[in-house]
Each structure stands twice: as C-alpha cells, then as structure tokens.
Design a protein around this nucleic acid. Sequence first.
DNA 1: ACATTGGGTCAACCCTGTTGACGTAACGCG
DNA 2: CGCGTTACGTCAACAGGGTTGACCCAATGT
Lengths: 235, 235
Amino acid sequence: MTTRVPQERKRRRPTRSGVVLSEQLIVETALRLIGEHGPEALSVRRLGAALGCDPTALYRYFHGTDDLVLAIADRIIGDAMAGFVPKDDWVASLREMALRVRAGYLAHPRAAAMAAHRVTRRRNEIHAVDTGIGLLLNAGFAPADAARLYLAFIDTVLSHAAAEAAFNALPRQQREADHRAWRDVYQDLDPETYPSLTAVRPELPGMADSSFEQAVDLLLEALTARAPAGRRSPR
Amino acid sequence: MTTRVPQERKRRRPTRSGVVLSEQLIVETALRLIGEHGPEALSVRRLGAALGCDPTALYRYFHGTDDLVLAIADRIIGDAMAGFVPKDDWVASLREMALRVRAGYLAHPRAAAMAAHRVTRRRNEIHAVDTGIGLLLNAGFAPADAARLYLAFIDTVLSHAAAEAAFNALPRQQREADHRAWRDVYQDLDPETYPSLTAVRPELPGMADSSFEQAVDLLLEALTARAPAGRRSPR
DNA sequence: ACATTGGGTCAACCCTGTTGACGTAACGCG
DNA sequence: CGCGTTACGTCAACAGGGTTGACCCAATGT
C-alpha cells in the first residue's frame, strides 16, 4: 500500500477494542511482547492481537516490519545510553560504555539482532562517538590514533554485543542445542585427532559462556599499554 | 516427519529432473543461491527449485532449515581453513587464522551474516577449535586460560567478520548511503556540542574503513603481554 | 453542517517451513 | 536372476508469516 506514515497524527480514532494507537504504544507493546513471550513472538499479527487492533493497522504507523524494527532499535539505544556521564578514568568509562551497549542489546535480543548491523547516524550515536573519542583524546592519544583506536574498540563492542544478542534471539531449541554442543559433542572426541581439545576438556563446557567481558578487558589492556605515559586518570 | 538423515546413503536415486542429490551438492547450491540472490533467496522451496527436485526431498538430508544453515557455515569454515598449517610463531598463526576466517566470510557475505554466530558442531569447526587452542597451549598458557582466551579471540574475530560481512551483504544503495553518511553527517557538526569530533575531523572519513586488523592486532598484543615468559616462538 | 480524508477493518494473495502418506526404484540377499 | 525391503523422491495439505487494495466510518477544518 505504501502508506504515508505522517509525522503528526491528528485524527486519532479508537480501535475496535477501544485502544488509541500511537507509535510509542506500538513500540512499547512490541518490546513487552518480545520480553514476555520470547523473541519469536514478534509478528505483525501477534502484535496486532496484543494491541487489540487489526494487524494491518500498524501499516498506518510503519512502512513495514523493517521500519518497526528500526524504531524499536532507536528506542533501545536511547534507553541504554540515557544518563551516562564519562568519568575521569577513561578506561573505566570505556568499559561502562561497552557494558551499557551490551546490556541494551541483550535486553531486546531479537530487535538488536535484526538491527545490529544497521548504521543509524542519529543524535544519540553521534553523541556517543564524541564522548568515546573524547575519552581517548583525554588519555593522551594523538587525534589520528584516538579516532582509529576508538573505531576498533567500538566496532568490537558492537559486533560482540550483536553476536550475543543474535544468539539469544534464536529459538530456544536451537539456542539450547548450540549450548549443549560444547558439553556433548566436544566431550567425546578422539584424543589422537584432537589432542588440544582433549587437553582442555574440563574447560570446554565454559565455552558456551559469553566472552564479552574477557574481550573488552583484553582490548582495554592493549589500549592502556599503548597510551602515552600509561596514564589512567589524567587531569 | 523427523527423518533419520543417515550418514551414508546407498540408494541414490535420480530426481525427476535427473539430478542426483547429495549433501555436498545441496550445500553448494545453497551457497550459490545466497550469493546470487541474497540471503532471503534461501528457502526450502527455492532451493528445491534450483536443485531440480521436490523441496521436501531436502528433509532426507537435513533435519530442517537450521541443520542446513549449520552445514553451510561449516562448509565456509572448511574452505577458509583449507591448507592452513600452524607455524611455530603462535601470534602469527592466530593472525593468519583470523584473516582466513574473515576472508571466508567475506567470500559469502550473505551466508556468513546468517550463520556466523552458530556452533556448527561439525568437523571443520571442531578441527579449527582444536588448532586454535593448540596454538595457545603451545604458547605456554594453562589449559583453563588457553580455552578462555581462545574463546575471547575467536568470538571477536567471528563477530567482527560477521558484522563486516553483514554490511557487505546490504543492498548497494544502503551500503553507499551509510558510507556517505559518515562524511556528510560528521562534517558539519557544531564544534561546541561536539568538541572531540571536531578535534579529529580530518580522520573521520577513515572511520568508514574496516577496523578488523586493528582490533586483531590489539587483541594479539594483549595476549602476548599475558603469555608466560612472553615467548613468541616456543619449541 | 458539510466535504475531506485519516485511519481502522476486512478479505485476499503469496510466501514460508514442516508433516504424513504414497509409491517407486534401487539395493542386499537367496 | 528375482524378490522383498526400504530409502528416498514426490505430493497434498496445514498453519503461520508479511503485505496489499478496497471499504467505510468518524474525526477534523472550514
């Protein structure tokens, strides 16, 4: 139909069940749906049912599923970074940024998995980039290094968080099967063909755990080592 | 139906159009389909049509879509790691592994975006994990550390490569728009609200480039620093 | 009070994955 | 050589998905 999806709506008409729709209400209901009934609960039909309106009414507010997902993602970003203030300790601040992004994604895995690799250059993101680069500049890095290193850092954080969210967005069956794989499949291997796996066998079940913090710590160690004068809490 | 999907098939019967199916042929056709017409081109029905067989014949070879996706992922891993022999220099070897995985994903961007974060629990993946952990053991890390650090390393490589692949899998229009947005949006910013971005402005166009190698180098630096006796080329 | 039109509703279309029944042809065995 | 067994390709069907175009009512600005 390619509806217009206007910015301001004036003629707000209650739905058959009495609810008055709005972009906000739809996004919030979608997030609630995902949170309550799992990631695969988000469909136009189910969302319509949860809202108490005809599924196709949503097309008056969003051009399609994709548009809806982006709106949800934008909401997630805003929520995640809300109230963040960088401290003097640039390492700790970068770490908090990483954890916030990850937490935001994990709170809504399905939406994050769908929109993670999209680039939404909006106010919140620009602000975050400015903050992050500012932390590295404050750490004493030259502008060129600050930009490049921040990119490496934030790309790692984003892709890691996206991967984790994508995993959590899988149907429970597949998710648990992947999880179990480290216990089951990797336990009964021929020691001769897989000597190293055999050597670390007791540690293999832990491979199902997240490596997010480990990776962030490693990156921050490398950044600290590269920082001029190794200062952690400048000025 | 929950078909058995046996390991060895003996009664190979040509399909109506004369093709003789095999797990290999199916995976290759799926990769071709995805590569040519995008990730959403992969459906049981379309794959059946491309193969010249009834769509449901695929259920004789794979338990379902998920099983097929895992097979595709493992194939990509296998192709990427084919002919890789670890050197004595464990840092250089891990680096090569990373670059190989990335190249493999970039060769099939759309397929990679779909399967990157899964545990295939198949031969090629198991072999790769054994090799990687072996390198860290050889570097002198204790088994528990080797397992955890390898996980952090490979997860970073995989998620980074997946993100890059996902970006490359975007329609050209969106991809170029995102690329351009970096310059457009970030060039005309208010210096007062975004002081750090203004300070590194000349470097911003470079933010569109990949940070893959930078991130891998940082990780390897951190691993080297943590390695016992800091040895690079153990015997 | 009236014309305009935003927007909720409905029916319909085509897509998807998956299943169970069905039959045929390929194989192992005698 | 032929006979049963059964693997496996085929077919029809189901439930669920996104999306569209027509319909029509009521909220709005004049």
